[in-house]
Design a protein around this nucleic acid. Sequence first.
DNA 1: TTTTGATACCTCGAAAACTTATGTATCTTT
DNA 2: AAAGATACATAAGTTTTCGAGGTATCAAAA
Lengths: 113, 113
Amino acid sequence: MSFSTELIKGTLRTIILKLLSNNDRLYGYELTQMVKEITGGKIQITEGALYPTLHALEKEGLLTTNIEYIGKRVRKYYHISKAGIETSNQKTSELADFINTITLLLDLKTLNA
Amino acid sequence: MSFSTELIKGTLRTIILKLLSNNDRLYGYELTQMVKEITGGKIQITEGALYPTLHALEKEGLLTTNIEYIGKRVRKYYHISKAGIETSNQKTSELADFINTITLLLDLKTLNA
DNA sequence: TTTTGATACCTCGAAAACTTATGTATCTTT
DNA sequence: AAAGATACATAAGTTTTCGAGGTATCAAAA
């Protein structure tokens, strides 16, 4: 079903930043659903990991927020800042580089369709 | 230089098992050097991570060992067991699958030469 | 109409995996 | 003689994430 989650470790920040680079604004729950849908359920972001990470990224100035009310329900939208975009690009290319390296090391090319 | 190491987390066991699938026997230090060389220094396995992991894999029956003396110096060779090979194959294809998924999610295809 | 499930936020203790530091010892090269 | 590479190992601390728990609104089904 979903991946043994050790692999996902270290990629959460990159995922969040990248998705917020591609989308003007997203709220937390929406992010989890988006990842779930795109990956066919293979990657599931847990809320216990998501929210603290979003708060940290905001604190670091990589994301900004604004709150909207849907009826009486709070919804907190996240936007990426300029610094966030830079970090996103840097982290994304680092991940791409890492993938190339590990593919070489483990000879995954034939497995990697 | 080397990757921000969060990415490597979760891949160490897979790296060890796969390299021991491809090589009849390797000792710890040799493993670190091999990884360093193949990856051009991009992935550096620290001894503090390596040895406990090797011990764990042995305890789980995925690796076996035998000791040799080079002069007066101990060298501990690791071999992979049948169970280890199965685990290696499983973990390797899981990693390949994860890479495909994260590549799709983050749109890395263009970056991934 | 009540209860279930989805939406939507959040915190906190515990676990896992690793880093950094430390330790021991041998061998080789300067 | 000292420094650096080889070769093993442990242990405290950090980071990241999971799992469980908590609150509340809204929609649909029973």
